Each structure stands twice: as C-alpha cells, then as structure tokens.
Amino acid sequence: MACKKESNLLGIWFATESTIQNAMIRVHHGDLEDLRKTHAASVRTAQAITVH
C-alpha cells in the first residue's frame, strides 16, 4: 500500500484513464450525440405511454 502512495499510482492511473476516455469521447462525439437523442426520444415515448 505504501508503494501505491509513494508512486501516486491512483493519481497517475486516474489521469491516464481520463485522458483516454476524453479522447474517445471526442472521436465518437457524433455517435454519442445520436445515442443521446435516441434515448431522449425513448424516454419521451415511455412517459407518454405511462401518463395516460
């Protein structure tokens, strides 16, 4: 455990993982936006069905 703290393993791991994920989000932004819109439409449909 001390080695993890001394080497800042978790901080480095988090920073690296965040960099990778942010890059992937940028690359796939259009696809993710399409999914967001599809999900929002599905939620609206479900709400319309369950309200009545």
Score class of each variant (00 low, 15 high):
1 M>L: 13
2 A>V: 13
2 A>G: 12
3 C>W: 15
3 C>R: 14
3 C>T: 07
3 C>Y: 15
4 K>W: 09
4 K>T: 04
4 K>N: 04
4 K>H: 11
4 K>A: 08
4 K>F: 11
5 K>A: 10
5 K>H: 10
6 E>I: 06
7 S>F: 13
7 S>N: 12
7 S>R: 12
8 N>P: 01
8 N>D: 13
9 L>S: 09
9 L>R: 10
10 L>I: 07
11 G>I: 11
11 G>E: 13
11 G>M: 09
11 G>C: 08
12 I>T: 15
13 W>T: 13
13 W>L: 15
13 W>N: 13
13 W>Y: 15
14 F>D: 14
14 F>C: 14
15 A>Q: 15
16 T>A: 13
16 T>M: 14
16 T>E: 12
17 E>I: 08
17 E>Y: 15
17 E>F: 12
17 E>V: 07
17 E>M: 14
17 E>G: 09
18 S>E: 12
18 S>W: 14
18 S>I: 07
19 T>N: 09
19 T>S: 10
19 T>K: 09
19 T>L: 10
19 T>P: 03
19 T>V: 09
20 I>D: 05
20 I>W: 11
20 I>Q: 09
21 Q>I: 08
21 Q>Y: 14
21 Q>R: 14
22 N>I: 06
22 N>H: 12
22 N>G: 06
22 N>K: 14
22 N>Q: 11
22 N>E: 12
23 A>Y: 02
23 A>E: 02
23 A>M: 05
23 A>P: 01
24 M>G: 02
24 M>E: 07
24 M>Y: 12
24 M>P: 00
24 M>H: 12
25 I>H: 06
25 I>V: 12
26 R>M: 01
26 R>E: 01
26 R>S: 02
26 R>I: 00
27 V>Y: 03
27 V>D: 01
27 V>E: 00
28 H>C: 05
28 H>V: 00
28 H>Q: 08
29 H>W: 10
30 G>C: 05
30 G>L: 11
31 D>L: 11
31 D>S: 13
32 L>A: 07
33 E>L: 10
33 E>I: 05
33 E>D: 02
34 D>F: 02
34 D>W: 00
34 D>A: 04
34 D>M: 05
35 L>F: 11
35 L>G: 04
36 R>V: 05
36 R>E: 06
36 R>G: 00
36 R>D: 01
36 R>Y: 07
37 K>H: 05
37 K>E: 03
37 K>A: 01
38 T>D: 02
38 T>V: 04
38 T>K: 03
38 T>H: 05
38 T>S: 04
39 H>C: 05
39 H>L: 07
39 H>V: 07
39 H>D: 00
39 H>A: 06
39 H>N: 07
40 A>Y: 03
40 A>E: 04
40 A>T: 05
40 A>H: 04
41 A>K: 03
41 A>W: 02
41 A>G: 05
42 S>H: 06
42 S>E: 04
42 S>P: 03
42 S>A: 11
42 S>G: 11
42 S>L: 07
43 V>Y: 02
43 V>N: 02
43 V>I: 15
43 V>R: 01
44 R>N: 06
44 R>T: 02
45 T>N: 10
45 T>F: 07
45 T>C: 06
46 A>T: 03
46 A>D: 00
47 Q>R: 01
47 Q>E: 03
48 A>G: 06
48 A>D: 04
48 A>L: 10
49 I>V: 07
49 I>H: 00
49 I>C: 00
49 I>E: 01
50 T>N: 03
50 T>W: 01
51 V>I: 08
52 H>F: 06
